Simulated assay, not measured.
Amino acid sequence: MATTLDSPPTPAKRTSEEDLVRAAKRKDRMTTWGWRIAGYVFFLGIWELASGRVMDENLLPGPSTVFRTFGELWATGEVPGAFATTLSRIAVGFTIAFVVGVGIGILMQNRFLNGFFRDAVTIGVTTPGLIWALITAIIFGNRTVGPLLAIVLTTFAIITVNVSEGIKSLPKDLLDMAKSFGVSLYKRNRHIVIPHLAPFIFTGVRFGFSIAWKVTVLTEVFAASEGIGFEMRTATQLFRLDEFLTWILAFYVLALFLDKIVLESLERRFFAWRGELKS
């Protein structure tokens, strides 16, 4: 009696929802980066064509000249030294501004202290950084305290506003429930208050840092003996436009690196506990 063996079933192609989502994200990321790179290529190409054709190359050095000058300045050690000086000022000044801003934001929950600080915070938010840079330059000259004070006066209010709004929107019902179940103050702060305030604080830090970066360079342009702003001023006084554009380009590159790479990485790492919403 003949027996027939059934052929084994053909293995089905495994395509899960996660694989599809991952592939879509990868495609979207490549498309985004492709258009971003195309934008850089387009504008740098227009700049290169304009240099020496639309305008004299001495008045508008092209990207190739600027990149070559950047390499020369880096080799001499001027770029790392100027970056280190400017970044150290930002680090110290913004740390002070952060501590002051958080402290005032907490104190403003009291209605009397809110009235005491309100106008100062409003002035801090609305006054352009250029004003503080000029004032500190006139008063302190090229002393180190000038840029530090300008950073604090310009950025503390942004931190204050974000912290104050975060505290006002704390989930009171959740805190009351935690108290009724005997949750300790440490655990309430760790699991409820800090996670709730973290987005407000990070938003204030990112906005404040971007402003602190610009104000620091402004104060160095007006009154400083070293730093990126000082190098910009020196290049303009000597009419070295290739060096001036090189320092501007270096300023942009470092600012983008600190914001998009450093701060965004810290933010993603801090909020990794939230994960991603999956449908």
Rank of each mutant, 00 (worst) to 15 (best):
H191A: 14
Q237I: 05
G229R: 03
T236W: 08
I248W: 04
A137I: 02
V253H: 07
R143T: 09
K172I: 13
N142V: 12
D173W: 02
D173C: 05
I135P: 01
V183F: 00
R143E: 13
I194R: 11
E243W: 12
S210L: 10
I228G: 04
E231P: 07
V217A: 04
S225H: 13
F207K: 13
K179F: 14
L174M: 14
N142H: 14
L241M: 12
V152Q: 00
L174S: 09
A198V: 10
G141Y: 02
I228Y: 07
A212K: 08
T216Q: 09
F222D: 05
Q237M: 13
F200T: 03
I139L: 02
Y252K: 13
A255S: 14
Q237C: 08
V152W: 06
A223N: 03
T144Y: 13
K187A: 14
A235F: 04
H196G: 10
E165G: 11
W247M: 03
Q237H: 13
L249Y: 10
G227S: 01
P147Y: 01
S180I: 11
L245P: 09
F202Q: 08
A223R: 02
R143C: 02
V152A: 01
T246S: 01
F222L: 08
V161L: 09
R233P: 06
T203C: 05
A178C: 05
L238M: 14
R190P: 08
G227Q: 02
K214G: 00
L238K: 13
L148A: 01
M177P: 13
V217I: 12
I158C: 06
V161Y: 04
T144G: 08
V205N: 07
V205P: 01
L254K: 02
